[in-house]
């Protein structure tokens, strides 16, 4: 499985990418929404996008809206990972077509919980 990590912070891309690699994903990166659309076109096997909200050129929200216009990407899972924690923002993102929403800061377990719920990694019961 391939995931696209979209964030203008290189450090954040490494953190999120590292969690996804540990979960069994191959990871590609993009620094803004436009770069991410280019990566989506280049890699037709992307199944998951982890998306920051505030980025230059094209925001994460605009990226979600754009992805949802294309039928060939309808099965791609979109997960926002952002500092934007206002309820209205979360509602907007979900209404635009995002599946999940993680508010920064987060721990690896938070991402893994979400991936399990989304059916992207195998469910492991905890002790």
């Amino acid at each position: 499985m391939k995931a696209l990590v979209i964030d203008d912070s290189r450090v954040m891309r490494k953190i999120v990418g590292g969690i996804l690699v540990d979960a069994g994903f191959e990871v590609v990166e993009a620094a803004d929404g436009q770069e991410a659309l280019d990566q989506m076109t280049l890699n037709d096997d992307i199944t998951l996008c982890c998306i920051d909200w505030n980025m230059p050129v094209m925001s994460g929200f605009e990226f979600v809206v754009e992805v949802r216009k294309h039928v060939q990407w309808r099965d791609v899972t979109l997960m926002m990972i952002t500092t934007e924690g206002e309820q209205g923002q979360i509602v907007r993102a979900l209404a635009a077509g995002a599946h999940e929403y993680v508010i920064k800061p987060f721990t690896p377990e938070v991402i893994l919980d979400k991936l399990q719920f989304l059916g992207l990694v195998e469910m492991k019961e905890t002790v």
């Binding site: 924690g85 206002e86 309820q87 979360i90 509602v91 993102a93 979900l94 995002a98 599946h99 999940e100 929403y101 993680v102 508010i103 800061p105 987060f106 721990t107 377990e109 938070v110 919980d113 979400k114 719920f117």
Partner: peptide, 20 residues
């Protein structure tokens, strides 16, 4: 807290059943 909310609560449920 936001950290507790992040643990396992699907975003659609957060929007539906919680108020900030």
């Amino acid at each position: 807290t936001q950290l507790e909310i992040n643990r396992g609560l699907p975003a659609p449920m957060l929007v539906k059943y919680f108020e900030r």
